[in-house]
Amino acid sequence: MNDIRYSAPHTIDEAVGALLAAKGTGRILAGGTDLLVQMKAGMALPGAIIDVKNIVEMSAIEDKGGGAFRVGAAVSGARIGEHAALKKAWPGVVEAINLIGSKQIQGRASPGGNLCNASPAADSVPALIAAGAIVAVHGPNGRREVAVEKIQIGPGKTSLQPGEIVVSFSLPARPAGSSDAYLRLIPRTEMDIAVVGCGVSLTMKDGVCTAARVGLGAVAPTVMLVEAAGAALVGSKLDAEALEKAAAACRAVCKPINDKRGTIVYRTKIAGVLLKRVAAIAAERAGGR
């Protein structure tokens, strides 16, 4: 019964203009795998839809060398999965994005959409947080850069200001011996939403962990950077004691709910279980302990 204004601008400034003009009723369309489902369910009734797939900067992957990449916010999961250099440098980020939905969904779904949908269970976000991704945000006042963990502020809520659009993710350069991994727990093997999701990015030198970041999803209103868990791993050989300390740090920050997808007790326990498993995979990829 309500009219929807659809536009597909070719520049980011036009997109920002269209979003502002919609006066809070505008929604960004990249893959549409969340937006269209919400509209069909009557949960979203946008006055304007701004399709950003024509904006070159948002649809490109740029290899900046040394492991650094810029990934457009609207690039599909399938294209990310097919990018050999990105996959080699950031296997955890890529596997997290590739876990979203089915093969068909992968042809559409984007990391920008996954972040801005602001689900605490978003699969790509823990891995991007662990990776230390920086988000480029474009708005009426130009461009700003912000750490990925600062975007989500609650279920379905972001820190984006009126007219602001997430343009791209920058993954930093890092030394040899670095890698990352992501695991989620779901009751099935695919087509599901994380009960807990955990991303770890780390650097190993001579069997010792010299840097580590941990992102944890689905156990609190937002995906979290667990600094204490990263700190527990740094300086260790990822021995049982260090892993347990990091797992305990993960459990300590959990503020989950009892719901149809899991209990508080279960989610808290699994946060620790996953941390250990993910850290082991990341270390293995980084060249062993």
């Binding site: 099935r188 695919e190 087509m191 599901d192 939403i193 719901d259 149809k260 997808r261």
Partner: peptide, 24 residues
């Protein structure tokens, strides 16, 4: 079937009513 305290079904969809998928 998972019910809330008001007797309303909490998982009326294939996402949270978990039938096996092929890969299971």
């Amino acid at each position: 079937y998972i019910y809330g305290s008001k007797g309303r079904l909490d998982n009326a969809g294939f996402l949270d009513y978990r039938m096996p998928v092929a890969s299971d």
